[in-house]
Computed example of a mutant assay.
Amino acid sequence: RQFPGCGNIVTFSQFLFIAVEGFIFEANFGRKRPAIPIRNYFIMVAMFFTVSVVNNYALNLNIAMPLHMIFRSGSLIASMALGIIILKKRYSVSKYTSIALVSLGIFTCTFMSAKQVASESSLNQEDGPQAFLWWLLGIAALTFALLMSARMGIFQETLYQKFGKHSKEALFYNHALPLPGFLLLAPNIYQHAVLFNQSELFQVPVLGLTLPIMWFYLLMNVITQYVCIRGVFILTTECTSLTVTLVVTLRKFVSLIFSILYFQNPFTGWHWLGTAFVFVGTLMYTEVWNSLGPLLARRRRPKEE
Protein backbone atom coordinates (compact mmCIF):
# COMPACT_ATOMS: atom_id res chain seq x y z
CA ARG A 1 0.00 0.00 0.00
CA GLN A 2 2.94 2.35 0.63
CA PHE A 3 4.29 1.62 -2.87
CA PRO A 4 1.33 0.74 -5.16
CA GLY A 5 3.58 0.15 -8.18
CA CYS A 6 5.87 -2.40 -6.51
CA GLY A 7 4.21 -5.39 -8.17
CA ASN A 8 7.11 -5.95 -10.57
CA ILE A 9 9.79 -6.23 -7.90
CA VAL A 10 7.53 -8.54 -5.89
CA THR A 11 6.93 -10.79 -8.90
CA PHE A 12 10.62 -10.77 -9.85
CA SER A 13 11.63 -11.78 -6.33
CA GLN A 14 9.11 -14.62 -6.30
CA PHE A 15 10.27 -15.90 -9.69
CA LEU A 16 13.94 -15.66 -8.75
CA PHE A 17 13.53 -17.51 -5.47
CA ILE A 18 11.52 -20.37 -6.99
CA ALA A 19 13.88 -20.59 -9.98
CA VAL A 20 16.98 -20.85 -7.79
CA GLU A 21 15.35 -23.44 -5.55
CA GLY A 22 14.21 -25.47 -8.55
CA PHE A 23 17.58 -25.23 -10.29
CA ILE A 24 19.25 -26.77 -7.24
CA PHE A 25 16.74 -29.39 -6.13
CA GLU A 26 14.72 -30.21 -9.27
CA ALA A 27 17.01 -29.59 -12.25
CA ASN A 28 20.07 -30.80 -10.32
CA PHE A 29 22.11 -27.78 -11.43
CA GLY A 30 21.00 -28.26 -15.04
CA ARG A 31 21.99 -31.92 -15.30
CA LYS A 32 18.43 -33.31 -15.34
CA ARG A 33 16.63 -33.29 -18.68
CA PRO A 34 12.99 -32.12 -18.65
CA ALA A 35 10.30 -34.76 -19.14
CA ILE A 36 8.22 -32.29 -21.17
CA PRO A 37 9.92 -30.79 -24.27
CA ILE A 38 11.37 -27.39 -23.46
CA ARG A 39 9.56 -25.65 -26.33
CA ASN A 40 6.24 -26.35 -24.62
CA TYR A 41 7.51 -24.69 -21.47
CA PHE A 42 8.47 -21.61 -23.48
CA ILE A 43 4.88 -21.31 -24.70
CA MET A 44 3.53 -21.86 -21.20
CA VAL A 45 5.99 -19.38 -19.74
CA ALA A 46 5.07 -16.68 -22.25
CA MET A 47 1.46 -16.99 -21.11
CA PHE A 48 2.37 -17.20 -17.42
CA PHE A 49 4.68 -14.19 -17.55
CA THR A 50 2.12 -12.11 -19.41
CA VAL A 51 -0.64 -12.95 -16.94
CA SER A 52 1.54 -12.14 -13.92
CA VAL A 53 2.76 -8.79 -15.25
CA VAL A 54 -0.66 -7.67 -16.50
CA ASN A 55 -2.32 -8.61 -13.21
CA ASN A 56 0.27 -6.64 -11.25
CA TYR A 57 0.14 -3.66 -13.59
CA ALA A 58 -3.64 -3.49 -13.21
CA LEU A 59 -3.08 -2.29 -9.64
CA ASN A 60 -1.57 0.88 -11.12
CA LEU A 61 -4.73 1.53 -13.13
CA ASN A 62 -7.06 2.63 -10.34
CA ILE A 63 -8.02 -0.96 -9.47
CA ALA A 64 -8.56 -1.63 -5.75
CA MET A 65 -7.10 -4.83 -4.33
CA PRO A 66 -10.49 -6.38 -3.35
CA LEU A 67 -11.85 -5.80 -6.86
CA HIS A 68 -8.61 -7.18 -8.29
CA MET A 69 -8.96 -10.38 -6.24
CA ILE A 70 -12.68 -10.82 -6.93
CA PHE A 71 -12.17 -10.32 -10.65
CA ARG A 72 -9.43 -12.94 -10.74
CA SER A 73 -11.70 -15.38 -8.92
CA GLY A 74 -13.77 -15.47 -12.09
CA SER A 75 -11.23 -17.82 -13.67
CA LEU A 76 -13.91 -20.53 -13.67
CA ILE A 77 -15.94 -18.49 -16.13
CA ALA A 78 -13.06 -18.03 -18.52
CA SER A 79 -12.00 -21.67 -18.22
CA MET A 80 -15.49 -22.93 -18.96
CA ALA A 81 -15.95 -20.57 -21.89
CA LEU A 82 -12.64 -21.48 -23.50
CA GLY A 83 -13.23 -25.15 -22.72
CA ILE A 84 -16.46 -25.00 -24.69
CA ILE A 85 -14.84 -23.12 -27.56
CA ILE A 86 -11.49 -24.91 -27.79
CA LEU A 87 -12.06 -28.37 -26.30
CA LYS A 88 -15.74 -28.63 -27.34
CA LYS A 89 -16.76 -29.53 -23.79
CA ARG A 90 -20.34 -29.62 -22.54
CA TYR A 91 -21.45 -29.04 -18.95
CA SER A 92 -24.43 -29.75 -16.69
CA VAL A 93 -27.11 -27.25 -15.71
CA SER A 94 -25.52 -26.82 -12.27
CA LYS A 95 -22.26 -25.81 -13.92
CA TYR A 96 -23.98 -23.14 -16.01
CA THR A 97 -25.87 -21.94 -12.91
CA SER A 98 -22.61 -21.53 -11.06
CA ILE A 99 -21.24 -19.55 -13.98
CA ALA A 100 -24.24 -17.22 -13.78
CA LEU A 101 -23.71 -16.68 -10.04
CA VAL A 102 -20.02 -15.93 -10.40
CA SER A 103 -20.71 -13.60 -13.33
CA LEU A 104 -23.36 -11.77 -11.32
CA GLY A 105 -21.02 -11.43 -8.37
CA ILE A 106 -18.22 -9.99 -10.48
CA PHE A 107 -20.62 -7.62 -12.24
CA THR A 108 -21.99 -6.39 -8.90
CA CYS A 109 -18.55 -5.68 -7.45
CA THR A 110 -17.31 -4.10 -10.68
CA PHE A 111 -20.36 -1.85 -10.96
CA MET A 112 -20.15 -0.70 -7.33
CA SER A 113 -16.43 -0.03 -7.63
CA ALA A 114 -17.13 2.02 -10.73
CA LYS A 115 -19.57 4.12 -8.72
CA GLN A 116 -16.92 4.62 -6.03
CA VAL A 117 -14.39 5.76 -8.60
CA ALA A 118 -16.93 8.15 -10.06
CA SER A 119 -17.86 9.58 -6.65
CA GLU A 120 -14.22 9.98 -5.60
CA SER A 121 -13.33 11.54 -8.91
CA SER A 122 -16.17 14.03 -8.62
CA LEU A 123 -14.20 15.74 -5.87
CA ASN A 124 -11.69 16.77 -8.51
CA GLN A 125 -13.28 17.60 -11.84
CA GLU A 126 -9.96 17.70 -13.66
CA ASP A 127 -8.93 14.21 -12.60
CA GLY A 128 -12.43 12.69 -12.71
CA PRO A 129 -12.68 11.58 -16.37
CA GLN A 130 -9.03 10.58 -16.41
CA ALA A 131 -9.39 8.44 -13.28
CA PHE A 132 -12.41 6.68 -14.74
CA LEU A 133 -10.61 6.01 -18.03
CA TRP A 134 -7.68 4.50 -16.14
CA TRP A 135 -10.16 2.33 -14.25
CA LEU A 136 -11.69 1.12 -17.53
CA LEU A 137 -8.21 0.30 -18.81
CA GLY A 138 -7.57 -1.65 -15.61
CA ILE A 139 -10.76 -3.67 -16.13
CA ALA A 140 -9.64 -4.42 -19.70
CA ALA A 141 -6.24 -5.56 -18.42
CA LEU A 142 -7.84 -7.86 -15.85
CA THR A 143 -10.16 -9.32 -18.51
CA PHE A 144 -7.23 -10.02 -20.82
CA ALA A 145 -5.26 -11.66 -18.00
CA LEU A 146 -8.29 -13.75 -17.04
CA LEU A 147 -8.70 -15.14 -20.55
CA MET A 148 -4.97 -15.68 -21.00
CA SER A 149 -4.80 -17.55 -17.70
CA ALA A 150 -7.67 -19.80 -18.75
CA ARG A 151 -5.96 -20.52 -22.07
CA MET A 152 -2.79 -21.40 -20.21
CA GLY A 153 -4.75 -23.83 -18.05
CA ILE A 154 -6.11 -25.60 -21.11
CA PHE A 155 -2.62 -25.75 -22.59
CA GLN A 156 -1.27 -27.28 -19.37
CA GLU A 157 -4.09 -29.81 -19.31
CA THR A 158 -3.24 -31.04 -22.79
CA LEU A 159 0.47 -31.22 -21.93
CA TYR A 160 -0.13 -33.27 -18.78
CA GLN A 161 -2.40 -35.63 -20.70
CA LYS A 162 0.30 -36.19 -23.29
CA PHE A 163 3.49 -36.29 -21.20
CA GLY A 164 2.25 -37.03 -17.68
CA LYS A 165 2.16 -34.78 -14.63
CA HIS A 166 5.46 -33.26 -13.52
CA SER A 167 4.52 -30.60 -10.99
CA LYS A 168 8.00 -29.76 -9.66
CA GLU A 169 9.45 -29.56 -13.14
CA ALA A 170 6.63 -27.31 -14.32
CA LEU A 171 7.03 -25.11 -11.25
CA PHE A 172 10.74 -24.66 -11.96
CA TYR A 173 10.51 -23.91 -15.68
CA ASN A 174 7.49 -21.66 -15.27
CA HIS A 175 9.61 -19.43 -13.03
CA ALA A 176 13.12 -19.85 -14.46
CA LEU A 177 12.48 -19.22 -18.15
CA PRO A 178 10.71 -15.85 -17.70
CA LEU A 179 13.61 -14.32 -15.73
CA PRO A 180 15.25 -12.65 -18.79
CA GLY A 181 11.94 -10.92 -19.47
CA PHE A 182 12.34 -8.92 -16.29
CA LEU A 183 15.15 -7.00 -17.99
CA LEU A 184 12.38 -5.02 -19.68
CA LEU A 185 11.16 -4.05 -16.23
CA ALA A 186 14.62 -3.40 -14.77
CA PRO A 187 14.20 0.39 -14.37
CA ASN A 188 10.96 -0.06 -12.44
CA ILE A 189 12.43 -2.85 -10.31
CA TYR A 190 15.53 -0.78 -9.53
CA GLN A 191 13.41 2.27 -8.69
CA HIS A 192 11.40 0.35 -6.14
CA ALA A 193 14.52 -1.32 -4.75
CA VAL A 194 15.82 2.17 -3.98
CA LEU A 195 12.49 3.10 -2.41
CA PHE A 196 12.57 -0.07 -0.33
CA ASN A 197 16.03 0.89 0.94
CA GLN A 198 14.62 4.23 2.09
CA SER A 199 11.79 2.69 4.12
CA GLU A 200 11.93 2.71 7.90
CA LEU A 201 14.22 0.26 9.64
CA PHE A 202 12.80 -2.86 11.24
CA GLN A 203 14.40 -5.31 13.65
CA VAL A 204 13.61 -8.91 12.77
CA PRO A 205 12.36 -10.80 15.83
CA VAL A 206 14.56 -13.62 17.17
CA LEU A 207 17.33 -12.97 14.62
CA GLY A 208 17.92 -9.44 15.81
CA LEU A 209 18.81 -8.26 12.30
CA THR A 210 17.92 -4.72 11.28
CA LEU A 211 16.80 -4.01 7.71
CA PRO A 212 14.34 -1.74 5.87
CA ILE A 213 10.84 -2.91 6.65
CA MET A 214 9.82 -3.17 2.98
CA TRP A 215 12.55 -5.74 2.38
CA PHE A 216 11.23 -7.72 5.34
CA TYR A 217 7.71 -7.57 3.89
CA LEU A 218 9.08 -8.71 0.54
CA LEU A 219 10.91 -11.63 2.13
CA MET A 220 7.77 -12.76 3.94
CA ASN A 221 5.78 -12.42 0.72
CA VAL A 222 8.27 -14.54 -1.23
CA ILE A 223 8.32 -17.29 1.38
CA THR A 224 4.54 -17.48 1.77
CA GLN A 225 4.03 -17.34 -2.00
CA TYR A 226 6.49 -20.18 -2.47
CA VAL A 227 4.70 -22.34 0.09
CA CYS A 228 1.35 -21.52 -1.49
CA ILE A 229 2.24 -22.15 -5.12
CA ARG A 230 4.27 -25.24 -4.27
CA GLY A 231 1.24 -26.61 -2.46
CA VAL A 232 -1.01 -25.89 -5.42
CA PHE A 233 1.33 -27.67 -7.84
CA ILE A 234 1.51 -30.67 -5.50
CA LEU A 235 -2.27 -30.72 -5.09
CA THR A 236 -2.72 -30.98 -8.85
CA THR A 237 -0.94 -34.34 -8.79
CA GLU A 238 -1.99 -35.70 -5.39
CA CYS A 239 -5.65 -34.66 -5.12
CA THR A 240 -8.73 -34.45 -7.28
CA SER A 241 -9.53 -31.30 -9.19
CA LEU A 242 -12.44 -30.75 -6.78
CA THR A 243 -10.08 -30.54 -3.82
CA VAL A 244 -7.63 -28.28 -5.65
CA THR A 245 -10.32 -25.88 -6.82
CA LEU A 246 -11.96 -25.76 -3.41
CA VAL A 247 -8.67 -25.10 -1.60
CA VAL A 248 -7.68 -22.35 -4.03
CA THR A 249 -11.13 -20.77 -3.77
CA LEU A 250 -11.02 -20.74 0.01
CA ARG A 251 -7.52 -19.26 -0.10
CA LYS A 252 -8.74 -16.44 -2.33
CA PHE A 253 -11.70 -15.81 -0.07
CA VAL A 254 -9.56 -15.66 3.07
CA SER A 255 -7.08 -13.37 1.29
CA LEU A 256 -9.94 -11.12 0.28
CA ILE A 257 -11.22 -10.81 3.84
CA PHE A 258 -7.70 -10.15 5.13
CA SER A 259 -7.13 -7.48 2.48
CA ILE A 260 -10.33 -5.67 3.44
CA LEU A 261 -9.60 -5.73 7.16
CA TYR A 262 -5.89 -4.95 6.99
CA PHE A 263 -5.84 -2.32 4.24
CA GLN A 264 -9.22 -0.83 5.19
CA ASN A 265 -10.47 -0.80 1.61
CA PRO A 266 -14.01 0.50 1.04
CA PHE A 267 -16.33 -2.48 0.95
CA THR A 268 -20.09 -1.93 0.88
CA GLY A 269 -22.96 -4.32 1.38
CA TRP A 270 -23.18 -4.71 -2.39
CA HIS A 271 -19.56 -5.82 -2.45
CA TRP A 272 -20.33 -8.43 0.19
CA LEU A 273 -23.29 -9.63 -1.85
CA GLY A 274 -21.12 -9.89 -4.94
CA THR A 275 -18.47 -11.76 -2.98
CA ALA A 276 -21.10 -14.19 -1.73
CA PHE A 277 -22.27 -14.84 -5.30
CA VAL A 278 -18.70 -15.50 -6.40
CA PHE A 279 -18.02 -17.82 -3.48
CA VAL A 280 -21.28 -19.80 -3.68
CA GLY A 281 -21.04 -20.02 -7.46
CA THR A 282 -17.51 -21.37 -7.23
CA LEU A 283 -18.59 -24.00 -4.70
CA MET A 284 -21.43 -25.01 -7.00
CA TYR A 285 -18.98 -25.36 -9.85
CA THR A 286 -16.84 -27.74 -7.81
CA GLU A 287 -19.99 -29.73 -6.90
CA VAL A 288 -19.01 -29.70 -3.25
CA TRP A 289 -22.68 -30.04 -2.30
CA ASN A 290 -22.83 -33.44 -4.00
CA SER A 291 -19.83 -34.56 -1.97
CA LEU A 292 -21.20 -33.27 1.33
CA GLY A 293 -24.69 -34.73 0.81
CA PRO A 294 -23.80 -38.43 1.21
CA LEU A 295 -21.48 -37.58 4.10
CA LEU A 296 -24.23 -35.76 6.01
CA ALA A 297 -26.67 -38.56 5.23
CA ARG A 298 -24.33 -41.16 6.73
CA ARG A 299 -24.00 -39.08 9.89
CA ARG A 300 -27.75 -38.75 10.29
CA ARG A 301 -28.50 -42.48 10.02
CA PRO A 302 -26.96 -43.49 13.38
CA LYS A 303 -28.95 -40.74 15.13
CA GLU A 304 -32.21 -41.91 13.56
CA GLU A 305 -31.55 -45.51 14.59
Rank of each mutant, 00 (worst) to 15 (best):
M47I: 08
S98R: 10
S94Q: 07
N60G: 09
I43T: 13
G105Y: 03
N28G: 06
V51L: 05
V102N: 02
P34G: 02
L82F: 03
I36F: 02
W135R: 06
A58T: 10
N124I: 07
R39Q: 09
A131H: 03
F42P: 05
I85M: 13
F17M: 13
E21V: 13
E120I: 13
I99F: 01
M47Q: 14
L76C: 08
L67W: 04
I63C: 00
N124G: 14
L101H: 01
S73N: 03
F71S: 00
F132P: 01
L123C: 12
N28C: 08
C109K: 01
N60F: 11
A131V: 11
L76V: 14
A64E: 02
S13G: 09
F49I: 00
A27Q: 02
P37W: 15
I84P: 01
G30L: 06
G128D: 13
F15V: 04
S119I: 07
F29E: 13
E126R: 05
I99P: 00
F48V: 02
W134H: 05
S73G: 11
A114E: 13
T50N: 15
I77E: 00
T108H: 12
L104I: 10
L87I: 15
M65C: 09
K89D: 08
F25N: 13
A81C: 09
Y96P: 07
M47K: 12
A19M: 14
M47D: 02
P34M: 10
F42K: 08
G83S: 12
A19V: 06
L104A: 04
S121R: 08
T50R: 05
G22F: 00
L82I: 13
A58Q: 05
W135F: 10
K32W: 11
G30P: 12
L133S: 14
Q14A: 03
Q125S: 13
I24D: 04
S79P: 06
N56M: 12
A114L: 14
C109Q: 03
L133T: 04
A114R: 11
A46E: 01
S113V: 08
S119Q: 06
I86S: 02
V45R: 02
I106K: 00
L104K: 10
F49P: 00
Y57H: 12
T50H: 15
I38Y: 13
V51I: 04
T108F: 10
M80Y: 08
F17S: 12
V117G: 01
E126P: 15
I43S: 11
L101E: 02
F107K: 15
L82T: 02
E126L: 14
I70E: 02
N28E: 11
S52F: 09
L104T: 03
T108C: 11
K88R: 12
N60R: 15
F17N: 07
I70A: 04
M47S: 15
A114C: 09
Y57G: 03
K89A: 08
V53S: 00
G105F: 08
M69F: 09
P129C: 02
A58E: 01
T50S: 09
S75D: 05
L133M: 15
I85E: 11
A114Y: 08
F25E: 04
G74H: 03
S122K: 14
F107P: 04
M44H: 11
R31M: 14
S94M: 08
L87A: 12
